[in-house]
Design a protein around this nucleic acid. Structure first.
Length: 476
RNA sequence: GGGGCCGUAGUCUAGUUAGGUAGGAUGCCGGACUCGGGCUCCGGUGGUCGCGGGUUCAAAUCCCGCCGGCCCCA
Protein backbone atom coordinates (compact mmCIF):
# COMPACT_ATOMS: atom_id res chain seq x y z
CA UNK A 1 0.00 0.00 0.00
CA UNK A 2 1.23 3.48 -0.71
CA UNK A 3 1.07 6.12 1.95
CA UNK A 4 -0.46 8.49 -0.58
CA UNK A 5 -3.62 6.43 -0.62
CA UNK A 6 -4.13 6.73 3.13
CA UNK A 7 -6.45 9.15 4.79
CA UNK A 8 -5.66 9.89 8.38
CA UNK A 9 -9.02 11.28 9.35
CA UNK A 10 -11.38 9.12 7.32
CA UNK A 11 -9.73 5.81 8.12
CA UNK A 12 -7.54 6.38 11.10
CA UNK A 13 -7.14 2.76 12.10
CA UNK A 14 -5.75 1.77 8.74
CA UNK A 15 -3.56 4.85 8.56
CA UNK A 16 -2.11 4.24 12.00
CA UNK A 17 -1.35 0.54 11.53
CA UNK A 18 0.30 1.20 8.20
CA UNK A 19 2.32 4.21 9.31
CA UNK A 20 3.84 2.81 12.50
CA UNK A 21 5.04 -0.23 10.66
CA UNK A 22 5.99 1.26 7.28
CA UNK A 23 7.85 4.14 8.91
CA UNK A 24 10.08 1.69 10.79
CA UNK A 25 8.77 2.60 14.22
CA UNK A 26 7.77 -0.91 15.23
CA UNK A 27 7.39 -4.39 13.84
CA UNK A 28 4.25 -6.05 15.09
CA UNK A 29 5.00 -9.47 13.68
CA UNK A 30 6.56 -10.79 16.87
CA UNK A 31 4.36 -13.77 17.76
CA UNK A 32 3.20 -12.70 21.19
CA UNK A 33 -0.01 -10.73 21.37
CA UNK A 34 0.47 -7.17 22.49
CA UNK A 35 4.26 -7.30 22.42
CA UNK A 36 6.09 -5.33 19.77
CA UNK A 37 9.57 -5.04 18.42
CA UNK A 38 10.76 -1.45 18.34
CA UNK A 39 13.00 -0.78 15.40
CA UNK A 40 16.02 1.50 15.76
CA UNK A 41 14.30 4.47 14.13
CA UNK A 42 11.23 4.29 16.36
CA UNK A 43 13.20 3.49 19.46
CA UNK A 44 15.39 6.53 18.92
CA UNK A 45 12.37 8.83 18.78
CA UNK A 46 10.99 7.18 21.90
CA UNK A 47 14.23 7.61 23.81
CA UNK A 48 14.65 11.22 22.73
CA UNK A 49 11.14 11.92 24.02
CA UNK A 50 11.52 10.09 27.30
CA UNK A 51 14.78 11.83 27.97
CA UNK A 52 12.96 15.15 27.94
CA UNK A 53 10.71 13.89 30.71
CA UNK A 54 13.57 12.38 32.67
CA UNK A 55 15.46 15.65 32.51
CA UNK A 56 12.40 17.54 33.70
CA UNK A 57 11.92 15.17 36.62
CA UNK A 58 15.54 15.64 37.60
CA UNK A 59 15.21 19.40 37.36
CA UNK A 60 12.34 19.13 39.80
CA UNK A 61 14.37 17.15 42.30
CA UNK A 62 13.57 13.57 41.38
CA UNK A 63 16.24 10.91 41.27
CA UNK A 64 16.37 7.94 38.96
CA UNK A 65 16.55 4.48 40.48
CA UNK A 66 15.85 0.93 39.49
CA UNK A 67 13.58 -1.60 41.14
CA UNK A 68 13.12 -5.27 40.16
CA UNK A 69 10.55 -6.61 37.77
CA UNK A 70 9.29 -9.45 39.96
CA UNK A 71 7.29 -8.94 43.09
CA UNK A 72 6.31 -11.74 45.49
CA UNK A 73 2.61 -12.40 45.46
CA UNK A 74 2.19 -11.66 49.16
CA UNK A 75 3.83 -8.25 48.78
CA UNK A 76 1.65 -7.42 45.80
CA UNK A 77 -1.43 -8.38 47.79
CA UNK A 78 -0.83 -6.01 50.72
CA UNK A 79 -3.04 -3.18 49.47
CA UNK A 80 -6.48 -4.64 48.81
CA UNK A 81 -7.88 -2.11 46.32
CA UNK A 82 -4.69 -2.28 44.32
CA UNK A 83 -4.79 -6.07 44.30
CA UNK A 84 -8.40 -6.02 43.25
CA UNK A 85 -7.75 -3.47 40.50
CA UNK A 86 -4.80 -5.28 38.96
CA UNK A 87 -5.58 -8.92 39.65
CA UNK A 88 -7.08 -9.53 36.24
CA UNK A 89 -4.14 -8.24 34.26
CA UNK A 90 -1.06 -9.22 36.22
CA UNK A 91 1.13 -12.02 34.90
CA UNK A 92 2.33 -14.68 37.33
CA UNK A 93 5.64 -16.52 37.25
CA UNK A 94 5.26 -19.80 39.02
CA UNK A 95 7.65 -22.27 37.49
CA UNK A 96 10.76 -22.89 35.50
CA UNK A 97 10.57 -25.17 32.52
CA UNK A 98 11.44 -28.04 34.80
CA UNK A 99 9.95 -27.33 38.17
CA UNK A 100 7.29 -25.47 40.04
CA UNK A 101 8.64 -22.63 42.19
CA UNK A 102 8.25 -22.51 45.96
CA UNK A 103 6.34 -19.26 45.76
CA UNK A 104 4.73 -17.17 43.07
CA UNK A 105 6.13 -13.99 41.64
CA UNK A 106 4.23 -11.38 39.70
CA UNK A 107 5.46 -9.29 36.80
CA UNK A 108 5.05 -5.64 37.79
CA UNK A 109 2.05 -4.04 36.08
CA UNK A 110 3.30 -0.82 37.76
CA UNK A 111 5.76 -0.60 40.63
CA UNK A 112 3.95 0.71 43.70
CA UNK A 113 4.25 -2.51 45.64
CA UNK A 114 7.82 -3.10 44.55
CA UNK A 115 8.99 0.33 45.60
CA UNK A 116 6.93 0.75 48.73
CA UNK A 117 8.21 -2.45 50.22
CA UNK A 118 11.60 -0.73 50.12
CA UNK A 119 10.22 2.63 51.23
CA UNK A 120 9.15 1.02 54.50
CA UNK A 121 12.76 -0.01 55.10
CA UNK A 122 14.22 3.32 54.09
CA UNK A 123 11.92 5.74 55.86
CA UNK A 124 12.28 6.19 59.61
CA UNK A 125 12.45 9.88 60.32
CA UNK A 126 11.02 13.09 58.89
CA UNK A 127 14.61 13.69 57.86
CA UNK A 128 14.24 10.90 55.30
CA UNK A 129 11.43 12.82 53.60
CA UNK A 130 10.49 13.72 51.00
CA UNK A 131 11.48 10.90 48.69
CA UNK A 132 11.11 11.60 45.00
CA UNK A 133 12.18 8.76 42.74
CA UNK A 134 11.48 7.65 39.22
CA UNK A 135 12.34 4.84 36.88
CA UNK A 136 11.71 4.17 33.20
CA UNK A 137 11.09 0.46 32.81
CA UNK A 138 8.92 -2.14 31.18
CA UNK A 139 5.72 -3.24 32.87
CA UNK A 140 3.34 -6.02 31.94
CA UNK A 141 -0.41 -5.96 31.75
CA UNK A 142 -2.51 -8.73 30.39
CA UNK A 143 -4.90 -6.55 28.41
CA UNK A 144 -8.18 -8.32 27.89
CA UNK A 145 -9.46 -5.82 25.37
CA UNK A 146 -7.95 -5.65 21.96
CA UNK A 147 -4.36 -4.59 21.79
CA UNK A 148 -3.20 -1.88 19.42
CA UNK A 149 0.38 -1.16 18.42
CA UNK A 150 2.02 1.18 20.99
CA UNK A 151 -1.32 2.44 22.31
CA UNK A 152 -2.52 -0.67 24.11
CA UNK A 153 0.06 -3.38 24.66
CA UNK A 154 0.80 -6.18 27.07
CA UNK A 155 4.38 -5.13 27.57
CA UNK A 156 4.70 -1.41 28.10
CA UNK A 157 8.35 -0.98 27.32
CA UNK A 158 9.02 2.51 28.63
CA UNK A 159 6.84 3.24 31.59
CA UNK A 160 8.18 6.32 33.29
CA UNK A 161 6.82 6.16 36.79
CA UNK A 162 7.60 8.61 39.57
CA UNK A 163 6.86 7.82 43.19
CA UNK A 164 7.07 10.21 46.11
CA UNK A 165 6.58 10.11 49.86
CA UNK A 166 5.87 13.13 52.10
CA UNK A 167 5.29 14.21 55.67
CA UNK A 168 1.84 15.66 55.22
CA UNK A 169 -1.23 15.67 53.05
CA UNK A 170 -0.45 19.27 52.22
CA UNK A 171 2.99 18.31 50.89
CA UNK A 172 1.46 15.50 48.85
CA UNK A 173 -1.05 17.90 47.36
CA UNK A 174 1.77 20.26 46.49
CA UNK A 175 3.54 17.38 44.83
CA UNK A 176 0.47 16.69 42.72
CA UNK A 177 0.59 20.28 41.51
CA UNK A 178 4.27 19.94 40.72
CA UNK A 179 3.66 16.71 38.82
CA UNK A 180 0.96 18.38 36.76
CA UNK A 181 3.35 21.21 36.00
CA UNK A 182 6.04 18.75 34.91
CA UNK A 183 3.66 16.86 32.65
CA UNK A 184 2.38 20.07 31.15
CA UNK A 185 5.92 21.03 30.26
CA UNK A 186 6.56 17.58 28.88
CA UNK A 187 3.53 17.50 26.62
CA UNK A 188 4.16 21.14 25.65
CA UNK A 189 7.63 20.14 24.55
CA UNK A 190 6.13 17.44 22.33
CA UNK A 191 3.69 19.96 20.90
CA UNK A 192 0.73 17.95 22.17
CA UNK A 193 -2.47 19.47 23.46
CA UNK A 194 -4.15 18.06 26.54
CA UNK A 195 -7.09 18.30 28.84
CA UNK A 196 -6.43 17.78 32.54
CA UNK A 197 -9.33 16.23 34.41
CA UNK A 198 -9.89 14.92 37.88
CA UNK A 199 -10.94 11.31 37.45
CA UNK A 200 -14.45 10.34 38.59
CA UNK A 201 -14.32 8.77 42.04
CA UNK A 202 -15.72 5.49 40.79
CA UNK A 203 -12.88 5.25 38.25
CA UNK A 204 -10.02 6.29 40.49
CA UNK A 205 -6.72 4.39 40.29
CA UNK A 206 -6.73 1.27 42.40
CA UNK A 207 -5.38 2.21 45.81
CA UNK A 208 -5.60 5.99 45.32
CA UNK A 209 -7.41 8.83 47.03
CA UNK A 210 -7.87 10.72 43.78
CA UNK A 211 -6.11 11.23 40.49
CA UNK A 212 -5.84 13.53 37.51
CA UNK A 213 -5.58 12.30 33.94
CA UNK A 214 -4.22 14.09 30.91
CA UNK A 215 -6.32 13.48 27.81
CA UNK A 216 -5.71 14.07 24.14
CA UNK A 217 -8.19 13.50 21.33
CA UNK A 218 -7.13 11.09 18.61
CA UNK A 219 -7.90 11.56 14.89
CA UNK A 220 -10.85 9.17 15.26
CA UNK A 221 -12.13 11.61 17.89
CA UNK A 222 -11.84 9.26 20.81
CA UNK A 223 -10.20 10.42 24.00
CA UNK A 224 -6.91 8.88 25.00
CA UNK A 225 -5.13 9.06 28.33
CA UNK A 226 -1.64 10.51 28.00
CA UNK A 227 -0.62 10.33 31.61
CA UNK A 228 -1.90 10.04 35.10
CA UNK A 229 -1.08 11.90 38.33
CA UNK A 230 -2.19 10.11 41.45
CA UNK A 231 -2.57 11.05 45.09
CA UNK A 232 -2.27 7.85 47.06
CA UNK A 233 -2.90 9.39 50.45
CA UNK A 234 -1.91 6.99 53.21
CA UNK A 235 -3.46 3.86 51.76
CA UNK A 236 -0.21 2.24 50.69
CA UNK A 237 1.64 3.67 53.69
CA UNK A 238 -0.76 1.78 55.94
CA UNK A 239 -0.63 -1.39 53.87
CA UNK A 240 3.17 -1.34 53.77
CA UNK A 241 3.69 0.18 57.19
CA UNK A 242 5.64 3.16 55.93
CA UNK A 243 5.91 5.29 59.09
CA UNK A 244 8.22 8.07 60.10
CA UNK A 245 8.98 9.67 63.42
CA UNK A 246 8.07 13.33 63.67
CA UNK A 247 9.94 16.11 65.42
CA UNK A 248 7.81 15.63 68.55
CA UNK A 249 8.65 11.94 68.73
CA UNK A 250 5.29 10.63 67.56
CA UNK A 251 4.80 8.45 64.49
CA UNK A 252 2.80 9.03 61.34
CA UNK A 253 2.25 7.27 58.07
CA UNK A 254 3.71 9.01 55.02
CA UNK A 255 1.58 10.56 52.30
CA UNK A 256 2.36 9.36 48.83
CA UNK A 257 1.90 10.29 45.21
CA UNK A 258 2.82 8.67 41.94
CA UNK A 259 2.56 9.62 38.30
CA UNK A 260 3.28 7.83 35.09
CA UNK A 261 3.62 8.21 31.37
CA UNK A 262 4.49 5.58 28.77
CA UNK A 263 5.49 5.11 25.14
CA UNK A 264 1.86 5.66 24.38
CA UNK A 265 2.72 9.36 24.07
CA UNK A 266 4.71 8.51 20.94
CA UNK A 267 1.74 6.68 19.49
CA UNK A 268 -0.38 9.73 20.21
CA UNK A 269 2.24 12.11 18.86
CA UNK A 270 2.47 10.18 15.60
CA UNK A 271 -1.31 10.21 15.33
CA UNK A 272 -1.92 13.82 16.20
CA UNK A 273 0.95 15.43 14.28
CA UNK A 274 0.90 13.15 11.26
CA UNK A 275 -0.79 13.73 7.93
CA UNK A 276 -1.84 11.63 4.94
CA UNK A 277 1.79 11.19 3.97
CA UNK A 278 2.84 9.82 7.34
CA UNK A 279 4.63 11.01 10.42
CA UNK A 280 5.76 14.56 11.18
CA UNK A 281 8.31 14.65 13.99
CA UNK A 282 9.18 17.85 15.81
CA UNK A 283 12.91 18.33 15.26
CA UNK A 284 14.01 17.80 18.86
CA UNK A 285 12.68 14.25 18.92
CA UNK A 286 13.24 13.40 15.24
CA UNK A 287 15.76 10.56 14.91
CA UNK A 288 16.86 12.21 11.67
CA UNK A 289 16.33 15.96 11.55
CA UNK A 290 17.57 16.65 8.06
CA UNK A 291 17.67 14.30 5.11
CA UNK A 292 19.85 15.30 2.21
CA UNK A 293 18.67 14.18 -1.23
CA UNK A 294 21.19 14.39 -4.08
CA UNK A 295 19.75 15.20 -7.50
CA UNK A 296 22.57 13.85 -9.67
CA UNK A 297 21.96 14.80 -13.28
CA UNK A 298 24.19 12.99 -15.70
CA UNK A 299 27.63 14.56 -15.78
CA UNK A 300 27.11 16.44 -12.53
CA UNK A 301 27.16 13.48 -10.15
CA UNK A 302 30.55 14.16 -8.69
CA UNK A 303 29.94 17.81 -7.91
CA UNK A 304 26.51 17.09 -6.46
CA UNK A 305 27.71 14.29 -4.18
CA UNK A 306 30.69 16.35 -3.09
CA UNK A 307 28.42 19.17 -2.07
CA UNK A 308 26.10 16.77 -0.25
CA UNK A 309 29.04 15.42 1.74
CA UNK A 310 30.19 18.95 2.59
CA UNK A 311 26.73 19.96 3.77
CA UNK A 312 26.36 16.78 5.82
CA UNK A 313 29.64 17.42 7.57
CA UNK A 314 28.66 20.99 8.30
CA UNK A 315 25.30 19.92 9.76
CA UNK A 316 26.85 17.21 11.90
CA UNK A 317 29.47 19.61 13.22
CA UNK A 318 26.61 21.79 14.35
CA UNK A 319 24.92 19.00 16.22
CA UNK A 320 22.19 18.31 13.69
CA UNK A 321 21.12 14.70 13.16
CA UNK A 322 21.48 14.52 9.38
CA UNK A 323 21.89 11.87 6.74
CA UNK A 324 22.33 11.61 2.98
CA UNK A 325 20.11 9.24 1.02
CA UNK A 326 22.59 7.78 -1.43
CA UNK A 327 20.40 4.91 -2.56
CA UNK A 328 19.73 4.53 -6.26
CA UNK A 329 16.06 5.32 -5.97
CA UNK A 330 14.74 8.28 -7.88
CA UNK A 331 14.45 11.57 -6.00
CA UNK A 332 10.67 11.37 -6.00
CA UNK A 333 10.77 7.98 -4.35
CA UNK A 334 13.10 9.32 -1.68
CA UNK A 335 10.81 12.23 -0.96
CA UNK A 336 7.90 9.92 -0.18
CA UNK A 337 10.10 7.61 1.82
CA UNK A 338 11.42 10.26 4.18
CA UNK A 339 8.13 12.07 4.40
CA UNK A 340 6.52 8.87 5.67
CA UNK A 341 9.22 8.72 8.34
CA UNK A 342 8.56 12.26 9.45
CA UNK A 343 11.96 13.89 8.87
CA UNK A 344 11.20 17.56 9.52
CA UNK A 345 13.39 19.13 6.85
CA UNK A 346 14.62 17.85 3.52
CA UNK A 347 17.62 19.36 1.77
CA UNK A 348 17.73 18.82 -1.98
CA UNK A 349 21.00 19.40 -3.75
CA UNK A 350 21.19 19.35 -7.55
CA UNK A 351 23.44 20.87 -10.21
CA UNK A 352 21.52 24.14 -10.03
CA UNK A 353 22.32 24.39 -6.33
CA UNK A 354 25.96 23.58 -6.98
CA UNK A 355 26.10 26.34 -9.61
CA UNK A 356 24.39 28.96 -7.50
CA UNK A 357 25.87 28.10 -4.10
CA UNK A 358 22.42 27.36 -2.78
CA UNK A 359 20.45 24.49 -1.29
CA UNK A 360 16.78 23.72 -1.72
CA UNK A 361 14.82 23.11 1.48
CA UNK A 362 11.43 21.53 1.94
CA UNK A 363 9.68 21.54 5.30
CA UNK A 364 7.72 18.42 6.16
CA UNK A 365 4.62 20.01 7.64
CA UNK A 366 3.63 22.32 4.78
CA UNK A 367 5.83 20.76 2.07
CA UNK A 368 6.81 24.30 1.03
CA UNK A 369 9.98 24.47 -1.01
CA UNK A 370 12.54 27.25 -0.63
CA UNK A 371 16.00 28.04 -1.95
CA UNK A 372 18.59 29.52 0.40
CA UNK A 373 22.21 30.53 0.08
CA UNK A 374 24.70 28.03 1.52
CA UNK A 375 25.71 30.35 4.32
CA UNK A 376 22.09 30.84 5.36
CA UNK A 377 21.45 27.11 5.75
CA UNK A 378 22.09 26.77 9.47
CA UNK A 379 20.08 29.76 10.67
CA UNK A 380 17.32 28.84 8.25
CA UNK A 381 17.18 25.29 9.59
CA UNK A 382 16.87 26.49 13.15
CA UNK A 383 14.14 28.84 12.08
CA UNK A 384 12.30 26.05 10.27
CA UNK A 385 12.60 23.66 13.19
CA UNK A 386 10.97 26.23 15.38
CA UNK A 387 8.26 27.12 12.86
CA UNK A 388 7.39 23.47 12.26
CA UNK A 389 7.15 22.83 15.98
CA UNK A 390 5.01 25.92 16.57
CA UNK A 391 2.77 24.93 13.71
CA UNK A 392 2.29 21.36 14.97
CA UNK A 393 1.60 22.58 18.46
CA UNK A 394 -0.90 25.16 17.26
CA UNK A 395 -2.72 22.60 15.13
CA UNK A 396 -2.82 20.16 17.99
CA UNK A 397 -4.49 22.70 20.26
CA UNK A 398 -6.93 23.70 17.56
CA UNK A 399 -7.81 20.05 17.06
CA UNK A 400 -8.45 19.50 20.76
CA UNK A 401 -10.49 22.65 21.18
CA UNK A 402 -12.64 22.09 18.13
CA UNK A 403 -13.51 18.62 19.38
CA UNK A 404 -14.73 19.59 22.83
CA UNK A 405 -18.41 20.48 22.80
CA UNK A 406 -20.76 21.76 25.46
CA UNK A 407 -24.27 20.42 25.96
CA UNK A 408 -26.85 21.51 28.50
CA UNK A 409 -28.95 18.37 28.58
CA UNK A 410 -28.55 14.62 28.20
CA UNK A 411 -30.47 14.66 24.90
CA UNK A 412 -28.32 17.42 23.51
CA UNK A 413 -25.16 15.60 24.58
CA UNK A 414 -26.28 12.45 22.81
CA UNK A 415 -27.17 14.33 19.68
CA UNK A 416 -23.88 16.22 19.58
CA UNK A 417 -21.98 13.03 20.15
CA UNK A 418 -23.84 11.28 17.38
CA UNK A 419 -22.92 14.06 14.97
CA UNK A 420 -19.45 15.07 16.08
CA UNK A 421 -18.02 12.57 18.58
CA UNK A 422 -15.06 13.99 20.48
CA UNK A 423 -15.53 15.08 24.08
CA UNK A 424 -18.75 16.57 25.44
CA UNK A 425 -19.00 18.54 28.65
CA UNK A 426 -22.21 18.94 30.58
CA UNK A 427 -23.09 20.91 33.72
CA UNK A 428 -22.92 18.72 36.79
CA UNK A 429 -23.81 19.14 40.45
CA UNK A 430 -20.72 17.19 41.46
CA UNK A 431 -22.43 14.22 43.08
CA UNK A 432 -21.24 10.74 42.13
CA UNK A 433 -24.79 9.56 41.72
CA UNK A 434 -25.52 12.13 39.02
CA UNK A 435 -22.15 11.53 37.34
CA UNK A 436 -22.87 7.84 36.98
CA UNK A 437 -26.33 8.60 35.67
CA UNK A 438 -24.81 10.89 33.03
CA UNK A 439 -22.68 7.99 31.87
CA UNK A 440 -25.63 5.64 31.70
CA UNK A 441 -27.99 8.09 30.04
CA UNK A 442 -25.52 9.18 27.35
CA UNK A 443 -23.91 5.77 26.99
CA UNK A 444 -20.54 7.50 27.17
CA UNK A 445 -17.64 7.21 29.58
CA UNK A 446 -16.97 9.83 32.22
CA UNK A 447 -13.51 11.33 31.83
CA UNK A 448 -13.71 13.60 34.85
CA UNK A 449 -13.96 17.28 35.65
CA UNK A 450 -11.70 20.31 35.87
CA UNK A 451 -11.97 21.58 39.47
CA UNK A 452 -10.83 25.03 38.39
CA UNK A 453 -13.51 25.46 35.78
CA UNK A 454 -16.84 26.61 37.18
CA UNK A 455 -19.92 25.52 35.26
CA UNK A 456 -22.91 27.56 34.29
CA UNK A 457 -26.43 26.20 34.36
CA UNK A 458 -28.11 23.28 36.04
CA UNK A 459 -26.98 19.70 36.52
CA UNK A 460 -28.29 17.72 33.55
CA UNK A 461 -29.58 14.99 35.85
CA UNK A 462 -30.95 16.52 39.04
CA UNK A 463 -31.40 20.13 37.94
CA UNK A 464 -29.55 21.55 40.94
CA UNK A 465 -27.00 24.29 40.42
CA UNK A 466 -23.99 22.95 38.56
CA UNK A 467 -20.59 23.06 40.22
CA UNK A 468 -18.48 21.75 37.38
CA UNK A 469 -18.62 20.41 33.88
CA UNK A 470 -18.55 16.66 33.64
CA UNK A 471 -16.54 15.54 30.60
CA UNK A 472 -17.71 12.49 28.70
CA UNK A 473 -16.69 10.65 25.56
CA UNK A 474 -15.33 7.37 24.34
CA UNK A 475 -11.96 6.33 25.63
CA UNK A 476 -9.23 4.26 24.11
C1' G B 1 -17.79 -10.64 29.26
C1' G B 2 -20.66 -11.61 24.34
C1' G B 3 -20.65 -11.80 18.90
C1' G B 4 -18.39 -11.60 14.00
C1' C B 5 -14.41 -11.53 10.23
C1' C B 6 -9.49 -12.96 8.84
C1' G B 7 -4.31 -15.62 8.41
C1' U B 8 -1.30 -17.99 1.12
C1' A B 9 6.55 -15.34 -0.72
C1' G B 10 9.49 -9.50 2.96
C1' U B 11 4.44 -6.87 1.75
C1' C B 12 -0.54 -6.91 -0.57
C1' U B 13 -3.42 -10.48 -2.75
C1' A B 14 -6.20 -14.58 -6.42
C1' G B 15 -7.48 -19.51 -5.52
C1' U B 16 -11.68 -21.95 -0.44
C1' U B 17 -18.58 -21.81 -2.33
C1' A B 18 -17.77 -27.00 -5.73
C1' G B 19 -10.90 -31.03 -2.53
C1' G B 20 -7.14 -32.64 -7.99
C1' U B 21 0.30 -29.23 -10.74
C1' A B 22 -0.28 -22.55 -5.60
C1' G B 23 -0.94 -17.70 -9.68
C1' G B 24 -0.37 -12.26 -9.86
C1' A B 25 1.38 -7.49 -8.14
C1' U B 26 4.97 -5.28 -5.26
C1' G B 27 9.62 -5.91 -2.87
C1' C B 28 14.46 -8.08 -3.15
C1' C B 29 19.10 -9.55 -6.38
C1' G B 30 21.83 -8.73 -11.37
C1' G B 31 21.95 -5.54 -15.76
C1' A B 32 20.55 -1.24 -19.03
C1' C B 33 18.50 3.63 -18.92
C1' U B 34 17.21 7.67 -15.85
C1' C B 35 17.12 11.22 -11.81
C1' G B 36 14.24 18.85 -9.21
C1' G B 37 7.73 14.15 -6.80
C1' G B 38 6.79 6.88 -6.59
C1' C B 39 10.41 6.45 -14.58
C1' U B 40 10.96 2.49 -18.13
C1' C B 41 12.92 -2.15 -20.04
C1' C B 42 15.50 -7.15 -19.67
C1' G B 43 16.87 -11.36 -16.57
C1' G B 44 16.53 -13.72 -11.80
C1' U B 45 15.13 -14.84 -6.57
C1' G B 46 11.56 -15.75 -3.15
C1' G B 47 6.02 -20.56 -0.53
C1' U B 48 6.39 -25.88 6.09
C1' C B 49 -0.61 -21.94 2.15
C1' G B 50 -0.22 -19.46 10.83
C1' C B 51 0.63 -24.19 14.04
C1' G B 52 -1.11 -29.17 15.46
C1' G B 53 -4.46 -33.06 14.71
C1' G B 54 -8.57 -35.45 11.83
C1' U B 55 -11.41 -36.97 7.21
C1' U B 56 -9.79 -38.52 2.15
C1' C B 57 -6.63 -42.11 -3.07
C1' A B 58 -5.78 -36.71 -2.75
C1' A B 59 -6.43 -30.79 1.72
C1' A B 60 -4.58 -23.79 0.90
C1' U B 61 -9.72 -25.67 0.25
C1' C B 62 -13.79 -29.85 4.58
C1' C B 63 -13.84 -30.85 10.35
C1' C B 64 -11.62 -30.02 15.48
C1' G B 65 -8.15 -27.54 18.73
C1' C B 66 -4.53 -23.82 19.47
C1' C B 67 -1.72 -19.28 18.17
C1' G B 68 -1.80 -14.47 15.90
C1' G B 69 -4.46 -10.10 13.73
C1' C B 70 -8.90 -6.95 12.92
C1' C B 71 -14.01 -5.21 13.88
C1' C B 72 -18.69 -4.63 16.61
C1' C B 73 -21.59 -4.83 21.17
C1' A B 74 -21.61 -4.67 26.83
Amino acid sequence: MESGSLRKYSNFSEWYDYVVEAADIIDKRYPVKGMLVWKPYGYKALKLSMRILENLLEEYGHEEAYFPMLVPEEVFAKEKDFLEGFSGETFVVERTIRKVLMRKFLLRPTSETVMYYMFSLWIQSYKDLPIKLFQTVNVFRYETEHTRPILRVREIIMFNEAHTAHESLEDANKQIKEAIEIYKKFFDSLGLSYLILKTPKWDTFAGAEYNFDFFEIMPDKRAIELGSVINLGQKFAKAFDIKYQKRDGSYEYVYQTCYGVSERVIGVLISVHGDDRGIIFPAHIAPIQVIIIPIPYKGSEEAVFKKCDDILLKLKQNGIRARIDKTENTPGEKYYYWELRGVPVRVEIGPRDVRNNTVTLVRRDTLKRMVVKDEELLPKLNELFKEIFDNLKKKSWEWLNQNIHTASSVEEAKEIYREKQGIIKVPWCGRDECGQKIEEATELEGLGHDPEEKAEGACVICGKEAKWYFYIGKKY
